[in-house]
Nucleic acid binder design. Sequence first.
DNA 1: AACGTTGTCAACCGCGGAAGG
DNA 2: GCCTTCCGCGGTTGACAACGT
Length: 237
Amino acid sequence: MGRSPCCEKAHTNKGAWTKEEDDRLVAHIRAHGEGCWRSLPKAAGLLRCGKSCRLRWINYLRPDLKRGNFTQEEDDLIIKLHSLLGNKWSLIAGRLPGRTDNEIKNYWNTHIRRKLVSQGIDPTSHGPISEPSAAASSQREANPSKIDKFVKEESQCCRQVRERCPDLNLDLRISPPYQNQESFKTGTNSSTFCFGCSTGIQNSKDCSCKEGNITNSGYDFLGLKSGVLDYRRLEMK
DNA sequence: AACGTTGTCAACCGCGGAAGG
DNA sequence: GCCTTCCGCGGTTGACAACGT
């Protein structure tokens, strides 16, 4: 016996959302809250599949979304987290307030991947890209493609930045979720988080902070008790 | 101006896992 | 333990915009 479809596909709209559909969805969620996506379309008077509604809300309509370009800090954090977590976009998104997994995934595929390649870094393994064969190199040297030109320009640009700012330390540290600056400065908020909570998975079965397992010196990041994983305190030598 | 190519990003699809009976 | 249902995730697609020739 196969799984039933999540909705009656014959009677659902597909493709881009209209302003009216957006309004209906937002109004319904404001009135009734999130949850029960399967029954939401009918309740909200939408001819959409529940999954589609959920996706539209999470990726586009949620009021806490941060729109606009990614900052350098976000860029670096994504790379760092990707090297630790791989393509776990939802976990990575949990570390970037206001960003969605879909947005980060798209950004990775269109920007960061290319940026890493241009720096000679394999975006999958985060290790150095193996050297191409000598024949291929000389062939590319003689007849460079657009990508080759782009990669060369990017590399030159990176070199120039390093030459101008040799002391710039771009190493990042990974921290628990952002705490407001006041409590951060005064130290009034001494609470710490396990990795699950730090990625937004509060009260997961693996949550260790609620059990008092975390000491004030750090939190459990990927099973490593760490006290200095704080990318927000970047040290500029 | 017209056409082709490339880049971007919203949306879809299918799968896996959790929850509940 | 098995089955069904639902949710959420990651990979992929396709429409549209921007850019190049």
